[in-house]
Design a protein around this nucleic acid. Structure first.
Length: 174
DNA sequence: GCCAACGTTGGC
DNA sequence: GCCAACGTTGGC
């Protein structure tokens, strides 16, 4: 990557927080808290307002890229790390010296048809994508602009509605 | 539920 | 610094 990444992918287990939860959230916006991995945190810190984010459902059936969000607030301290009662509490992170950060993301769109992992794996142009790398577990990762373009194109293709019967009469079905 | 892959922890 | 033990992630 020659310039800084402008495209990202974040994972969420839909049972914890799905893209539909994001759609139903106030202002369709949420803080992306709970990241407790240094590499993922560093990627969060590299995000800029306006960057685009693929929303991925992990531990789902099927696991899939399900939509697009955008960064609306850049990294700031993840206060859930300060909260002893919180699941993601981390005593090493202090308000005066925060260890973990979060960003705010806002829903852009939910794909009418999501892109399952196995479909992405079948796309030769995506083989070097971080998400598809064997053993990849990063919950926040950069996406190359080329990969972004391919995925968005695939999503649009999937979203294409069948044409009205009249205009479809002559077309050959594949 | 299984388990491979990976990150973290801590003894030495 | 090494590395075994352990915990977590996440596809299957």
């Amino acid at each position: 990557m020659s310039s800084r990444p402008r495209y990202w992918l974040v994972k969420s287990e839909p049972s914890a927080f799905s893209i539909h939860d994001l759609r139903n959230a106030p202002r369709r916006t949420t803080s992306w808290d709970g990241v407790r991995n240094y590499q993922a945190r560093n990627y969060l810190r590299a995000m800029k307002v306006g960057d685009s984010v693929l929303f991925y459902h992990s531990n789902a059936d099927p696991p899939a890229v399900v939509g697009v969000a955008e960064v609306v607030r850049e990294a700031y301290p993840d206060h859930t790390a300060f909260d002893r009662s919180h699941k993601h509490f981390d005593p090493r992170s202090r308000p005066e010296r925060p260890l973990w950060d979060m960003v705010d993301i806002k829903l852009v769109r939910v794909f009418a048809r999501s892109l399952p992992l196995d479909v992405l794996r079948r796309e030769p142009e995506l083989t070097s994508m971080e998400l598809l790398r064997r053993g990849s577990r990063l919950s926040v990762q950069p996406v190359r602009s080329r990969e972004w373009g391919i995925i968005v194109k695939m999503a649009e293709k999937g979203n294409k509605r069948p044409r009205p019967a009249a205009s479809r009469k002559r077309s050959t079905r594949i």
